[in-house]
Design a protein around this nucleic acid. Sequence first.
RNA 1: GCGGGCGUAGUCCAACGGUAGAGACAGAGGACUUAAAAUCCUUCCAGUGUGGGUUCGAAUCCCACCGCCCGCACCA
Length: 865
Amino acid sequence: MSRYEAGVAEPKWQKAWTDKGCFETADIESPGGDTRPKYYVLEMFPYPSGRIHMGHVRNYAMGDVVARAKSAQGFAVLHPMGWDAFGMPAENAAMERNSHPAKWTYANIDAMREQLKAMGLAIDWSREFATCDPEYYAQQQALFLDFLDADLLTRKSATVNWDPVDMTVLANEQVVDGRGWRSNAPVEKRELTQWFFRITDFAEELLEAIDTLDGWPEKVRVMQRNWIGKSRGIEIPFALTDAAQGMEVVECYTTRPDTLRGASFIAISPEHPLSVALSETDTTIAAFRDECRLAGTSEEALEKAEKRGIGTGLSVVHPVYPDRTLPVWIGNFVLMDYGTGAVFGCPAHDQRDLDFARKYELPVANAFHMPGESVDVGDEALVPTKSETVVYVDHFAGLGETTSAEGIDATIDWMEARGLGTGQVRYRLRDWGISRQRYWGAPIPVVHCDACGIVPEKKENLPVRLPDDVTFDRPGNPLERHATWKHVACPACGMDATRETDTMDTFVDSSWYFARFCSPRATTPTNRAEVDRWLPVDQYIGGIEHAILHLLYSRFFARAMAKTGHLSPESVEPFKALFTQGMVTHETYSRTVKTNEGVERDVFFTPDEVSRDEEGVMRDASGEVITVGPTIKMSKSKRNTIDPEAIIARFGADTARWFMLSDSPPERDVEWTEAGAEGAARHLQRVWRLVTETAAKLNGAQGTATGASDLRKTTHRAIHAVTDDIAAFRFNKAVAQIYGLTNAVSQTDGKDLMALREAVEVLILLMAPMTPHLAEEAWAALGHDTMVVETPWPKADPALLVDDQITMPVQVNGKKRAEIRVDAKADKTVVEEAALADDAIQKLLDGGSPKKVIVVPGRIVNVVL
RNA sequence: GCGGGCGUAGUCCAACGGUAGAGACAGAGGACUUAAAAUCCUUCCAGUGUGGGUUCGAAUCCCACCGCCCGCACCA
């Protein structure tokens, strides 16, 4: 009997699918029009780093299962693939190799495309594009111009990290301990005028619509809500007793105006205009500001930083109690870019304020007590939740017992009515700055003209192409120093002008690619007929790391595109359902070695470099004992990666796919183990054996399965369960069901040939979304001359899903004591009689009668004594 | 600190509030074999992190605690 040779079968069927164009999705305007319901399944497109990793295998295996199952179930499926191809790694590689980012990127794409194709994915490759293709970024530039026209863009000043040696702007992650990652030079803050998408205009809409995203994980919805960070509060002007530095008031923002009675000081940010002004004449304040700036760079410092402050000598009048004055402090914990950069401190109801007050001996006064208590605050601030009931001192924010939420609302109304403050709704969300001072991104299509100002490039001149003749051998942006590129005529007046040399954030590229896939060659950003047919994406699959930025930006972009006519207003939520898959993990292998300096450090080994000896001890090639470390996410630094290409070469793509979908629920982490992979491969061989044996037994026999044998019942139950499990993303359970069916087939006597054939064919069809190559090979072996990809999904016969007679457990006081066989449709009284008539139950009843008998039809009987 | 999630056999995981086991991995024994691999058969193993509560009945719902994971965080 022959073994299944994945190495032969997989390329064969991949070619057969491609030759027949099985996965190419027709345009809506194509002749004959596809009237099937649509289904758009999309996995987050990869960055072309050069090689696929196991995370890709898992992500794309899941998407492929959905795509193939939906296709078999009668949907017109759109399942495209592309490349998120702009970004810094390409520039870094170009610097290292003295090459060009495009060369590196497109070579990586070629390599990764081959690797993905070896996975046998049901992808419409005719729609492939990379975001660095001029055809793509031309349309992105067109969108930019339309957004500019629709007032969805603005220009304002923003602070960037500037590397004075490399003469470049650094992303936050490129700043290590306050120094540039390459140059190691201290990073400077610089103010640059940059482009921003006005995403904050949509803050409320983006927040409210989260409630409609019921196909999204709750976790992601919570993260988006927190990111938008809506709060209701009030801005209160505190009048300075003596105007200082030309300022008469300090505006404070608070979400807890109900605590205003307990205010005992004002704290302003070191960056507050008043602090800045004071530091010009006061050297102590200047020194304090300098200290804060130094301490404030690293996150670690922020976390540990002690709450410190310095008095300004100024004071303000309490707006509600004009006879009270409050001192003004500068506090290192007050952030300039949140609220107004100034807060009032209420030590009684804020732990941070209390710490500060105790340290600098400032008064502490309660604004409220818990009902029935009136103990003053000691070392711990009294901070009840807003829904808890409190009693306000002096009825400050409410009579009698009231919740803080009511107190807050009452105070805002009361203060607004008296002109003491302005109620405000604020969002944590900031406008999205997209200007990047880099080469490898989509150029921002505007020209700076001395006479006309900022002039949009004309659409007919798009794309504003990146020049090819650039070098990375010198610091700075190659676009900036290119001899001719930026020198252009003004599109408006024709005079000499300068092209903008900033490029767009790569998040822009990924914020609309899902729409572009609907008509990837259109000469406008979208073709309305196509996007209206395909959007929204019915199922989006990717990593949780994109839970906030990418998904929020895409939601914004869809709205902006709808506003500018590129999408239907019905498509403002681009992803109907989202699934976030878990990571792929592996054991780590390490050994502690001493360096020449005598320092001990751990050296990590790849799974290939270690093996177990006869005693089961892990050793490296030289025989040294290796420590097996924790199972963690595959990463280059811990060297615990498994190369998908090697796995596919050794076991085949189907085995890799099958194992990735087995055992662990898709949203959880999955551990890659050698044993697990071998087990998956064994199962595929076992299925193949069953297929060839069945084909031999059938020997061409024709006919239809009839009757209600156990095998047929098992078969149809498997159809039912696997169909449900795939639809609900329970791939691990679908796999378990298929194992169960496999066991049933191999244990059957095989006398009912037609039932056997039905079972094996169903097995193949159910496995097909996960192991498509094996399915095709098996299908052909069973004598079919059509392909599985052209075969409809099997349908479960409802009659075979139910039993006539069922076994019901009988409990006495919650403990199982007997089993009875009853008719499945028997009514409660019949079941109750049967249960009480059981010998074991009779014995326990001991002649008495039960207090109560609970019959759950089809489930259980419980007798209460 | 705030928010979310997870704790079930040696391991990964199942179980509409209703018989704790679908499935896999590993282990043990056996069959086949000159032997091994492959294959097949049989089989061992937990009472669900801990403590309460609700219920006829709790892995499942509620409360508290313990442990692990993931977000967010001087957010006023």
